[in-house]
Amino acid sequence: MTTTALSVRDMLVVYEDFAALNRVSLDVQHQESFGIVGESGSGKSTLLRAISGLSAFQEGSLTVDSRNFNGRKRDREFYRTVQMVFQDPYGSLHPRQTVDRLLLEPLAIHGFDNVDARIARALDEVGLGSGFRFRYSHQLSGGQRQRIAIARALIVEPKILLLDEPTSALDASIQAEILNLLEQARRDRSLTFVMVSHDLGVISHMCERLAVMKSGEIVEILPADALEKRQFSADYTRQLLVASEGFRRD
């Protein structure tokens, strides 16, 4: 049975008099992997930030697990359900905390028990052994940092994971590893993904459906395999596809 995990209706985000999101609506099903692509400034990251409560939306509605949210206010229960992985692994880990502290924090906030075992398991799950547990973030490489960021998001056992270009700051070989790790986690935990990327290749690899965004609006929503069959209606999608193929070497 597929039900709606996350639903956005007519979301409007205005900065001064610039509409970063102009009445965006989308529905993401349970256990679905939903991609959002678009050029820089198309509002895709703004959408994730508005969903997560990092920035406020002025109008519209957000429904997560049949609970309504608005503006910026999110309760603790929301963050048990929804977690986010950021783009820049160099900026998203606290510079003065060990991995242990980083992973302990969400457990402490949500009052989990058995924290030592949970931290050890979380590190194992992202392919880092206990040898990394007491390192500071400056003692880690970019890929390792992103694994820690993923472990931190997964440790509270969320149902929905928001991914804001999780691999664009990493080089190609590490990208593949991180994407495989995310795919594995999704299968193991039956997660729902909302993934933002400017890379059509990454999105079509990871996602079942995707939305194409431009200037704060959704141009179209289509299944990922429609991209390969070239069954899209919007001219902009075609341009985006051509642009991304232009850099392919095959």
Partner: peptide, 13 residues
């Protein structure tokens, strides 16, 4: 406004 503070906010702190 850095991401590591956003990350803690997103934990519900």
């Amino acid at each position: 406004n850095s991401e590591f503070i956003s990350a803690v906010q997103l934990m519900g702190a």
